[in-house]
Amino acid sequence: MQLTGNTILVTGGGSGIGAGLAGAFHRAGNQVVIAGRRRDALEAVANQYPGMTHLPLDLGNLACIDAFADELVRRHPDVNVLVNNAGIMAVEDLERSVPRVIRAVCSTNLIGPLLLVSRLLPTLKQHPRAAIVNVSSALAFVPKASMPTYSATKAALHSYTQSLRFQLQDSSIQVIEIPPPMVYTDNRPTDANGVGVDEFIDEVLSELASHPEAGEAVVSAARRLRFADRRGEYEKQFTAVNPMPQKGKS
């Protein structure tokens, strides 16, 4: 992916990884559009970067995606990079499932991004260089049992990204996956497997710059889970992610 001279849409751009990516892409010399549910959060990010714009988007409300895409292309016909970053996490007890939570996580993390890709593909194909960047998760590869729907949607997004990359291999669109590890939005990691937002963003940009044709940007802290199966360590890492609770002594 070329890191400058693009017009980039970043979903979930009002906080966390999305805000970090948006700022980094802006500083690298791109026109950046951020989208998200909270207008005040979007405005707070955009106000830090002259020229950055924002549009409201709730990916959990699937009915609004067509109108959002129309407005985006009307305002920014040169948009050539989509960063599907928006996502929500939920801790769930599967014996007491809440359908509303399941629907929200699936819509925001998977169905919405897929519909947005489908809607923007005709526009992206018009550009000689374009990219779709899907932000999945290290938990796509080793799930966290307490967040089953979140982990499942990210695994599905990984699978979809592979298929999308294959189908677009002869087009001008590069398909990239970024699987974050645990990222601490206050930049204060509490364990060796997590990173702060700034460190994560710096390493992602370094990976993209060093390997501009690569299909993945995997930071150091994500590699333990991302490549667990390849290294024959899946069971070990699954146990590490999902430790059995300590039983009290009688």
Rank of each mutant, 00 (worst) to 15 (best):
T108W: 09
V98H: 13
R119K: 14
M89R: 06
S107R: 10
L42D: 12
G87D: 09
E43D: 10
G51H: 10
L57C: 13
V91S: 07
R103W: 07
N80S: 05
L55H: 15
I111F: 14
R100Y: 02
V98S: 09
L42A: 07
V45N: 02
T108V: 11
D66Q: 01
R100F: 02
E43T: 13
T53C: 10
V45S: 05
D70H: 01
I88V: 15
P56E: 11
D78W: 03
D70P: 01
P99L: 05
E92S: 10
V98R: 14
R38K: 14
V81H: 02
H54M: 08
L121G: 07
N85P: 03
L116E: 01
D66I: 01
V45L: 03
L72W: 04
A86K: 03
A41Y: 00
R75K: 12
D78M: 10
M52A: 10
H54S: 12
T108R: 04
V98N: 13
E71L: 13
A46G: 10
L59K: 06
P50M: 05
R119F: 01
T53R: 12
V101Y: 04
G112F: 01
H76G: 06
S118R: 15
P99S: 11
L82R: 00
T53M: 09
L116W: 01
L116V: 02
Q48C: 06
I65N: 00
R38T: 15
M89E: 15
V105K: 09
N47I: 00
E71G: 12
A104W: 05
L72C: 03
R75P: 04
R96M: 07
R39A: 08
V98T: 14
D93I: 07
C106L: 13
